[in-house]
Design a protein around this nucleic acid. Structure first.
Length: 571
RNA sequence: CGGGAUGUGGCGCAGCCUGGCAGCGCACCUGCUUUGGGAGCAGGGGGUCGGGAGUUCAAAUCUCCCCAUCCCGACCA
């Protein structure tokens, strides 16, 4: 391909609204353009990368026996009503109406559609199956952001496994686990598998593949001493033992004028670890109390995962006052019997605690949880913090910001049951197959690669997904010797199956070098009068900046060799 | 949805406070010179100043409403 004929609109400066690295570089490099928030056009370079990422995924899915499909993106409401997700997906799902007035949705995932197809599976002999597609998903994200990392319309490889029993599901799950590691390794993404919450999908085992990056949106807890790794949404840690303060026979009221925060109460002689934090939430319509140790944070996701709650919002000040008789800052659970009380296990066995008295400007001290508070349910719902000891080995835990590059989970029979799927087993009995669901966002993977593979000059693509594998930079296009060598090399490399880009633009060399670095082509061959006259060229590695002189005659073989090496590289 | 910010040629910005010719850099077009790290000179094209209403002799500038975009929090590939 000749640069002079291609549409590669590079920009010297990124648009002001582009903040994330992947966004800035992909826009500057002429890979993508934003149409509206969360919707991006793929330009030729971007689409080439997108397709190559898809191809890597496809190869590894095929390698575990996956079969590629392509399902409709638009679905009738009744399909989603059958699984119950028409209602449970809420505002996240794009909905529309056709001319007949029928309700439709744009697919967010395809459990329902694949499960419908699986109705044609009749016998245990038909199982297992692994079905996948790379298809556009639509999600009405509350806040699209960070370039391609979080968008409303994106290509996702989603696969679904169908097995007769749990053992089979385990095996399909493990195969996906392996395939995902292979995919991320080929994409040169250091993706760590971590235990995760299964969120809105439901299901049991759930593993996310996380790539460390400040642009990410998830925090991952990892242990330096063992292989424990989990999303903070479900991470646990060991508790450092705390000596209870001396108690009393009953809670005592103390005046605490204007003290409304944990911090203020702490300054008044009641350290956070000796306080009970009382939060009031309205959960699916009713008020509940959430009790945590003063220095612990409430993690809503843990609560949702454990209780199946759908609508979870902090209560308003006036409903709190109506229920408890005080305002936030002076709340407590002592004596409360008409609200459900959830408490974090870090409070178990604690006494000598300080908490609000449900009377403004008054707190209670000497509270013994077991004696004074009618806890209805103990629930791990605190967010752990860096430095806490690992529950299994005691080493300090670290927390790293990560991009969720992939997610695999065991769905069980939720969807197959809802769609009425069953097959006959060896005994002739009806059995509902168990399913797994596995996703990788293609554009997000691209973004993650850029986030982790760039320098001040621009992107640095791994060979296997680079839009072009080598760029032939002709320093002076009206120098006949240079162009002759470049044209010949271009033809031979094309014939050898190399993705070669010939920079034949009549421009200044500095611009051409800068552009080739910005768009991140792994190899650059500089062809100019300086070397050509003595039969030499210059080969530059984008990643390292390493340069080597090369006789004209060796150009093609050397490039082919390096490209082949790079294509098969694994992290 | 809560908090913060921004909207002026393709991109980056100034102008707004204090109303009075719509400007600068990059990019683009033409010519000449230049050519191994984002060239120089000369000439040139391109903007309903996010949209609507209002105030005023006069609005990019002041007022009100709306829209869009970005960032921080609650949700996910």
């Amino acid at each position: 391909m000749r640069w002079s004929n291609l549409f590669i609109p590079t920009l010297r400066e990124a648009p002001a609204e582009a903040d994330a690295v992947n966004h800035r570089l992909l826009v500057r490099g002429g890979f993508i353009r934003q149409l509206q928030s969360g919707h991006y056009s793929m330009l030729p370079l971007g689409w080439r990368v997108h397709q190559k990422v898809g191809e890597v995924i496809r190869q590894e899915m095929d390698a575990i026996g996956g079969q590629e499909f392509l399902l409709p993106a638009m679905h009738q409401a009744s399909l989603w009503q059958k699984s119950g997700r028409w209602d449970s997906m809420g505002d996240e799902m794009f909905r529309l109406t056709d001319r007949k007035g029928a309700d439709l949705a744009l697919g967010m995932t395809h459990e329902e559609v694949f499960a419908t197809l699986s109705l044609e599976l009749a016998s245990y002999r038909d199982l297992p199956q692994i079905w996948y597609q790379i298809q556009w998903k639509f999600r009405d994200e509350p806040r699209p952001k960070a370039g391609l990392l979080r968008v409303r319309e994106f290509a996702m490889k989603d696969s679904y496994s169908f097995d007769i029993d749990d053992e089979g599901l385990d095996s399909s799950f493990d195969m996906h686990h392996g395939a995902y590691q292979a995919i991320f390794s080929r994409l040169d993404l250091d993706a760590v598998p971590v235990q995760a919450s299964s969120g809105a999908m439901g299901g049991s085992a759930s593993v996310e593949f996380m790539v460390a990056s400040p642009a990410g949106e998830d925090d991952v807890v990892q242990c330096g001493g063992c292989d424990y790794a989990a999303n903070v949404e479900r991470a646990t840690a060991a508790l450092e033992p705390i000596q209870n303060r001396v108690g009393s026979d009953a809670p005592e009221s103390i005046p605490t004028p204007d003290i409304r925060t944990i911090k203020a109460l702490s300054d008044a002689g009641h350290p956070p670890e000796h306080q009970i934090k009382t939060l009031v939430y309205r959960i699916d319509g009713s008020l509940v109390l959430i009790l945590l140790r003063g220095d612990h944070a409430f993690l809503e996701q843990k609560f949702v995962d454990a209780t199946g709650a759908i609508d979870l919002v902090p209560a308003e000040a006036d409903e709190i006052r109506a229920a408890l008789g005080a305002s936030p800052g002076s709340l407590g659970a002592v004596g409360v019997t008409d609200l459900t009380i959830y408490a974090d296990p870090a409070l178990e066995g604690r006494s000598g605690m300080t908490t609000g008295a449900n009377e403004d400007d008054v707190h209670l001290t000497g509270v013994d949880i077991a004696r004074d508070i009618a806890v209805d349910r103990w629930l791990d719902m605190r967010g752990i913090e860096a430095g806490e000891p690992c529950a299994s080995c005691g080493e300090a835990l670290t927390i790293t910001r990560c991009i969720e590059a992939g997610h695999i989970f065991k769905l069980g029979r939720k969807y197959s049951e809802a769609m009425g799927v069953s097959v006959l087993d060896a005994e002739g009995e009806n059995r509902v197959p168990t399913m797994g669901s596995y996703g990788i966002g293609v554009g997000r993977a691209m973004a993650a690669i850029v986030e982790t593979h760039h320098d001040d000059a621009g992107m640095i693509w791994p060979m296997c997904v680079a839009p072009f594998e080598v760029v032939l930079t002709v320093v002076k296009v009206d120098h006949e010797g240079s162009m002759a060598v470049a044209e010949a090399a271009h033809g031979e490399l094309l014939a050898a199956g190399i993705d070669v880009l010939l920079d034949d633009r009549d421009g200044r060399p500095g611009v051409k070098f800068a552009d080739s670095e910005l768009i991140g082509i792994p190899l650059r061959v500089t062809i100019g009068p300086r070397g050509i006259d003595s039969g030499m060229l210059e080969l530059t590695m984008r990643a390292t900046g390493e340069q080597q002189d090369l006789p004209v005659g060796d150009l093609v073989t050397r490039v082919v060799e390096l490209v082949h090496e790079g294509r098969s590289a694994r992290l």
